[in-house]
Design a protein around this nucleic acid. Structure first.
Lengths: 189, 189
DNA sequence: ACCACATGTGCGCTATAACGCACAAGGGGA
DNA sequence: TCCCCTTGTGCGTTATAGCGCACATGTGGT
């Protein structure tokens, strides 16, 4: 119960909330007991880097994403395009990785001609933005297909089913994900 | 002595060697016992983040400087194309208007060949992201010009002076602004 | 040689990080 | 209503991070 004069803040709770996961789920995917996770979130415990590392790896996030400090004001490598595979077997490139301070991330997505991708509803409070780079794209929003050309953008709530459908020449677009604040959600309710 | 399956490496020894300091000296300036410092260097102990933080502050280094490696950052907003004129007589299009819930907005900026634009420091807590659509662009960040090509992105803290400079064929890029607090409204003007 | 000092490591003790388990509270079904 | 499952927190135990101190080695000075 020492509670050192913490100038350091851990954003575990924010990250977990953004992902819409329970302590139990996080405990499974990180290998850290949920009791410990709870204590860390409440600031009752100062974890070792080994534990922090486990958590970061479980979330597939850089270690710094869990630490709240001035350290965050650093560099973004411009060409570190990492690629990840999405739920719907869709492969995308990470343009801007998730930052808990901004609660947002940006992907670069390529769709082959006429390729489509359906996405189930995300956690509540998630907003998506799409900006078309090349080709033509249709987005399913509120049960309606919205056509977009290169240079056009669309913003929509992602806590509803939605989808993407490329035109005859395929499409490339940026996909931004925004995760709402906790108090923002409370304010809405 | 368990020594968890560390995939993580601490650079304490390197940093200390680079500074030419003894364990005792480091112990003084960090407030961490030299015995512990020695164990950490030898990998016999996995420090808590509180301890790591002490060490980092003692060295006046960002926390990341002691850890293997990492980076972070990220994103923004919307619908119709409105155009506005910016302080520096720069004309931009609004891709995604500011949304209080997201605290973010996205602009589409066109620069003529070799055109440049300097920007004074914004309010604290403002983060910018730039994604180059066409041409080549250089961004002044931390007093250093970072070159970017089409398809590349860069994220940086905007509470410092920064600037944009197009290449010989001009440049087009997306510019996302993220505001950390609610006072973001005041920062928009 | 000898000594004064500084280096890094080993030892015992205390504080606490981390675990597994159990429990109180809330949310749906049937 | 009753039941069952999931949520997060509290408790007791074990592992270990972190401390102060002492020791072995090393280096230079006179």
């Amino acid at each position: 119960m020492k509670m050192a004069p913490d100038e350091i803040t851990l954003k575990l709770r924010d990250v977990r909330a953004a992902a819409g996961l329970s302590l139990s789920k996080v405990a499974e995917m990180t290998g850290v007991s949920k009791a410990m996770l709870g204590q860390i979130e409440r600031g009752e415990s100062s974890p070792t880097i080994a534990t922090l590392w486990k958590i970061a790896k479980g979330f597939q996030l850089p270690l710094g994403a869990l630490i709240g400090s001035e350290t965050l004001r650093e560099t973004p490598s411009s060409d570190v395009f990492r690629t990840v595979t999405f739920p719907g077997s869709l492969e995308v490139k990470i343009v801007f990785p998730f930052d808990p301070a901004l609660r947002a991330e940006t992907f670069h997505v390529d769709l082959a001609p006429n390729q489509s991708h359906e996405s189930a509803a995300h956690a509540t409070g998630v907003t998506e933005e799409v900006f078309v780079l090349h080709g033509s794209l249709e987005i399913l929003r509120d049960g309606e297909w919205v056509p977009l050309q290169a240079g056009q953008g669309l913003r929509f709530a992602a806590d509803l089913p939605h989808g993407y459908r490329a035109g005859d020449q395929g499409a490339a677009f940026l996909n931004m994900h925004h995760y709402a604040q906790l108090d923002a959600l409370a304010a809405i309710g």
